[in-house]
Design a protein around this nucleic acid. Structure first.
Ligand code: MN
Ligand code: MN
Ligand code: ZN
Ligand code: ZN
Lengths: 154, 154
DNA sequence: ACTTAGATAAGAATGATTCTTACTTGGTAA
DNA sequence: TTACCAAGTAAGAATCATTCTTATCTAAGT
């Protein structure tokens, strides 16, 4: 979550068997700085462009997909088409606001645990489970304010 | 789940305040017959075309979106862009197979109940909850066979 | 039957993503 | 350090799913 140095980013790329090119380091740096957000390729491109005017949009598209294949980042599911990426590779869920179209991270260890326990009570045939997450659909009440979810004493 | 007659389809359209045009009835009929699947507009179009050669693809796109707005069908979330529709408007979850790219319905009342109970233990501020569902990610072991999930005596 | 707001067909336009190709570069090993 | 080359990139063309435009049509109310 804290910003990684370029050299740390380089190490992580190499650890995945990827050449640590300038372009990949910059794209990785930019997308990791967006932790908690779910950008499209164009947004990443616009952010890195001022300091790196020679990197092309096509490279950003390709690089983000390369990162997904290598597990460095994830895709996030969308309702209205369009590819969005998620710098957060920890198990977590998402809140979708149908007003603002925001996708908000929802990290809740108790929920993860609950689901894990639940799926132990199920016998899946012909399916190799990788992960699961929850989608919360609804609307922000005040679009400008944050959504918060706290534990409450039952 | 059992096929509705055209007249029943017409009634459902009217009940939503939609004009019951021939095109809407046919699109509705076609998409409802795909219960358990998650088609794109083009797939619906190809299915209805033989018997209805004058309906245009643009109308299918528009009609499906109209149905979503009216709550007659749902969108289903996708990882790789592209709009997919879901004839099943009951609360249910989805299994995503990364081999076959299939999206499989997963209906489990116990899971729904579990989530409902869970969210009672959470206090959401600034968020009006509408619904939630679970995404299961993984791979079919044998792509041609079905995935089944059964309760197992703990 | 008459009227009209809303719906449709056809095809043009758009825009996100992918593809192609000639050029460049990171990493490796002499 | 230098030479080498497999892999990566820039630029822009191509693709293709989706939306838009507009002239025409029709469902449903009067
Ligand atoms: Mn996330
Ligand atoms: Mn479904
Ligand atoms: Zn909202
Ligand atoms: Zn699979």
């Amino acid at each position: 979550m804290q910003n990684l140095t370029r050299d740390e980013l380089r190490q992580r790329l190499l650890a995945c068997g990827l050449k640590a090119t300038h372009q990949r380091i910059v794209v990785f740096e930019t997308v990791m700085a967006l932790h908690g957000q779910h950008p499209v390729a164009e947004e990443v491109y616009q952010l890195l462009k001022p300091a790196n005017p020679s990197i092309s949009l096509g490279t950003v598209y390709k690089t983000l997909d390369t990162f997904v294949e290598s597990g460095l980042i994830n895709r996030v599911f969308t309702e209205e088409g369009g590819k969005r990426y998620d710098p957060n590779t920890e198990a977590h869920s998402h809140i979708y606001c149908s007003n603002t179209k925001e996708i908000i991270d929802f990290e809740d260890a108790e929920l993860d645990q609950l689901l894990l326990e639940f799926f132990k009570t199920r016998n899946m045939e012909n399916f190799q489970f990788r992960s699961c997450s929850v989608q919360l659909m609804g609307c922000k009440v005040e679009p400008d304010k944050k959504v918060t979810i706290q534990r409450v004493s039952k």
